[in-house]
């Protein structure tokens, strides 16, 4: 077996660090992303973001990270995405307060997908 050069070792180290970084973000925390473009705001996305934060706090879920993104085309807003290690990225459309509560209870806590609200959003859309 050929010896590894310093450059080779460095390359491996950087590649593995990226993988570890990804695992730490996606493995430890649940990531909720709320689409907060103007159309989303008009549809109540701000209310949904705040409501999800309130339920998360009420249930003592300290590992839930919430961030915001812009609008998505061709969807019924508000849109909420949930990334977890168990389910990967799940996107929901037309999220009202009832659905937001179900997302926390059934998807984030229960690990189940709400099939009636689920949509596919491709990366870059």
């Amino acid at each position: 077996m050929a010896k590894l050069t310093l450059a080779g070792l460095r390359e491996i180290r950087e590649r593995e660090a990226k993988k570890i970084g990804k695992r730490e973000i996606h493995g430890r925390d649940v990531h909720v992303i709320v689409a907060m473009g103007t159309s989303g705001i008009q549809s109540g996305a701000k209310v949904i973001l705040n409501y999800i934060a309130d339920i998360v706090e009420e249930k003592g879920l300290d590992n839930v990270i919430i961030t915001q993104t812009g609008a998505f085309d061709g969807v019924v807003e508000p849109v909420v995405q949930v990334y977890s290690k168990a389910l990967g990225l799940v996107s929901y459309q037309g999220v009202d307060k009832d659905t937001a509560k179900k997302i926390v209870e059934e998807t984030i806590i229960g690990g189940k997908i709400l099939e009636d609200k689920k949509i596919e959003i491709k990366d870059g859309e």
Binding site: A53, L61, V64, I66
Partner: peptide, 11 residues
């Protein structure tokens, strides 16, 4: 502010 629980506390 990335933590949902802290967003609620802020509110």
């Amino acid at each position: 502010f990335s933590k949902g629980s802290d967003l609620s506390l802020l509110r």
